[in-house]
Amino acid sequence: MSWLKPVTLVGKNIKLEPLSLEHELALREAVCDGELWKLWYTFIPKPELIHSEIKRRLELQQRGSMLPFVVIEQHSGQILGMTSYMNVVAEHRRVEIGSTWYRQSVQRSAVNTEAKQLLLKHAFEILNCIAVEFRTSSFNLKSRAAIERLGAKLDGVLRSHQIVQDDILRDTYVYSILKNEWPAVQQNLTWKLEQSR
């Protein structure tokens, strides 16, 4: 775990803080904003499963394969959702940004753009990542559009990649941003955030 250590990433409007069990009640409240667990093509825990989801992510952190965060609004202190570095491959300096969800009231706002900018900046400028990956369901059109707006390029589609509910198979779209693409992506994200103010 020496390569990827818990860290707080601070932006202008949000901060990403290392996930802990102390965030459970606020995350239960956040996931109820929009009843996010009803999305069939992705996994977002029901309120009563938040505790076990936090524990799962923290266990993966202990194994060195995940670094989970809560997303917090700076001026109110309200928890907006969760995100993670995951599928960590330290020897190849690669991470995936995923397992992300936000309360419905802040979706389609600048929150995701700023969170991704913070995570990408840390990945490329501090961790010296070669590539950062994103994955989403073929049916998650909002997520695919959001990933593409970041400037990520489609690497390919993993057909019948995962079983979701009721034995339905999910095709997974895999995107990435490479280190040499980061300066242009960063410029674009900065511009987008300035436009949203």
Rank of each mutant, 00 (worst) to 15 (best):
L19W: 05
L19G: 05
S20A: 11
S20V: 07
S20L: 06
S20C: 06
S20G: 06
L21Y: 05
H23G: 04
H23F: 12
H23C: 06
H23P: 03
E24T: 04
L25R: 12
L25M: 07
L25P: 03
L25Y: 08
L25T: 07
A26E: 12
A26H: 12
A26Y: 04
A26T: 04
L27W: 02
L27I: 03
R28M: 10
E29G: 03
E29T: 11
A30N: 11
A30S: 11
A30D: 07
V31W: 10
V31F: 02
V31Y: 03
V31D: 06
C32Q: 15
C32K: 15
C32I: 09
C32P: 08
D33G: 03
D33P: 11
D33W: 09
D33R: 08
G34R: 13
G34D: 07
G34P: 13
G34Y: 13
E35M: 13
L36Q: 05
L36E: 01
W37V: 05
W37R: 14
W37L: 10
K38I: 10
L39E: 14
L39S: 14
W40V: 09
Y41I: 12
Y41N: 15
T42M: 15
T42K: 13
F43D: 14
I44Y: 11
I44G: 09
I44V: 15
I44Q: 08
P45A: 08
K46G: 02
K46R: 14
K46Q: 15
P47T: 01
P47D: 03
P47A: 02
E48M: 01
E48Q: 13
E48V: 01
E48F: 00
L49T: 11
L49E: 15
L49N: 15
I50E: 09
I50S: 02
I50Y: 04
H51W: 01
H51T: 06
H51E: 10
H51K: 12
H51V: 00
H51P: 04
H51L: 08
H51N: 11
S52C: 05
S52G: 02
S52Y: 04
S52M: 09
S52F: 06
E53L: 10
E53P: 00
E53Q: 13
E53I: 00
I54Q: 02
I54M: 01
I54L: 03
K55C: 06
K55Q: 09
K55P: 00
K55E: 13
R56N: 07
R56Y: 09
R57I: 00
R57V: 00
L58F: 01
L58P: 00
E59T: 13
E59Y: 08
L60K: 14
L60W: 13
Q61C: 02
Q61E: 12
Q61M: 09
Q62E: 14
Q62K: 15
R63T: 04
R63Y: 07
R63I: 03
R63L: 12
G64H: 09
G64A: 07
G64T: 10
S65P: 03
S65A: 04
M66N: 10
L67V: 04
L67R: 07
P68H: 09
F69C: 07
F69N: 01
F69E: 06
F69Y: 10
F69P: 02
V70Y: 10
V71F: 06
I72N: 03
